[in-house]
């Protein structure tokens, strides 16, 4: 009887299993296979070269720059977006006139393509006639070449992405704030807790589920950052602000080195696994009890 039931359950699971194998395991397996070939990405012929692509990647300075940048983007954007999102959530959780408009305004850039936002923000940072430099000149200061170095461009991309997309994080924290039981806050107030202590000992600990969701979602999204870099810095100067996703795309479609790009993608895949496993373990050990 139990075996029959198990088989029935297995049948129910089959569509999901097929989907996961077809849409997850097959592409990953295929990318791994491609990494062992010298292939231009479109020819019907592939040349097996063993581990050569992987060896070459490890000696490629552009790979290491892109890996460094990807880690800066992933952790930097996650941290800045969470700090900003939390602060904004506290702000728009208060009742005041025009609150809905402000919430919508903060969220709006999230719905616009990163490519377009990058184009718009380019005119803020450009050296010659950019909005920020015009302000500096009006204040009697020298204009700054914000994107002169790779690190400078990386930080500009990081801050721009964080400021533009903090609306989604704000929304997560706002939902968390509105789920905190009022009686908890009221009893704290009756016990004479100050606003600061109320936030520190009740609100923030109870926001942990939102925080975990936000950190995980932002980390995943920031590892894949692509469009805003393309339009804001183009990955430059000299590849200095390139992310791994952009580098993979360049090698695959630009240099016609699909096998090499697949090798980078696989190494990137393992980097993400190595980073995400301890984070996932730590986050899942944090539980909130009311």
């Amino acid at each position: 009887m139990q075996k029959k039931l198990d088989r029935k359950y297995l049948l129910f699971m089959l569509p999901a299993i097929i989907m996961v194998v077809a849409l997850r395991f097959f592409p990953i397996g295929n990318a791994l296979r491609m990494g062992f070939f010298d292939w231009n990405g479109y020819s019907q012929d592939m040349n097996f070269i063993g581990l050569d692509n992987f060896k070459e990647v490890l000696g490629d300075s552009y790979f290491w720059i892109a890996l460094r940048n990807t880690l800066i983007y992933a952790f930097g954007i996650t941290i800045v977006k969470n700090i900003l999102g939390l602060a904004l959530a506290f702000f728009v959780n208060n009742k005041f006139r025009g609150r809905s408009v402000i919430r919508a305004t903060i969220y709006l850039p999230v719905m616009i393509s990163g490519f377009i936002m990058g184009q718009i923000m380019y005119y803020f940072y450009q050296y010659n006639g950019g909005i920020f430099n015009e302000i500096l000149i009006k204040l009697g200061m020298e204009p700054v070449y914000w994107m002169e170095t790779g690190l400078g461009a990386t930080i500009i991309v990081l801050l721009t992405t964080s400021f533009l997309h903090c609306g989604s994080t704000m929304l997560l924290y706002l939902a968390g704030l509105q789920n905190i039981p009022h009686e908890l806050l009221e009893s704290a107030r009756l016990d004479g807790a100050s606003k600061w202590k109320e936030t520190l000992h009740i609100t923030l600990p109870l926001l942990q589920p939102s925080m975990i969701t936000s950190v995980v979602l932002n980390l995943i999204a920031s590892f894949k950052i692509y469009d805003i870099i393309t339009s804001l810095s183009g990955g430059g100067p000299d590849g200095g602000s390139t992310s791994l996703t952009l580098l993979i795309s360049r090698y695959y479609f630009g240099y016609n080195r699909a096998g090499y790009a697949a090798a980078i993608a696989m190494l990137f895949f393992f980097v993400i696994i190595i980073i995400s496993m301890p984070i996932n373990k730590w986050l899942s050990s944090r539980k909130v009890e009311y």
Binding site: Y123, Q126, N128, Y145, M147, E148, A153, D238
Partner: peptide, 21 residues
């Protein structure tokens, strides 16, 4: 070249040229 030539995008390049810079 412009001081920020490394980071000028193509639209900006045309605009500066058209503006007589």
């Amino acid at each position: 070249f412009f001081k920020d030539a490394r980071s000028i995008n193509t639209n900006d390049m045309y605009e500066r040229m058209a503006a007589g810079q």
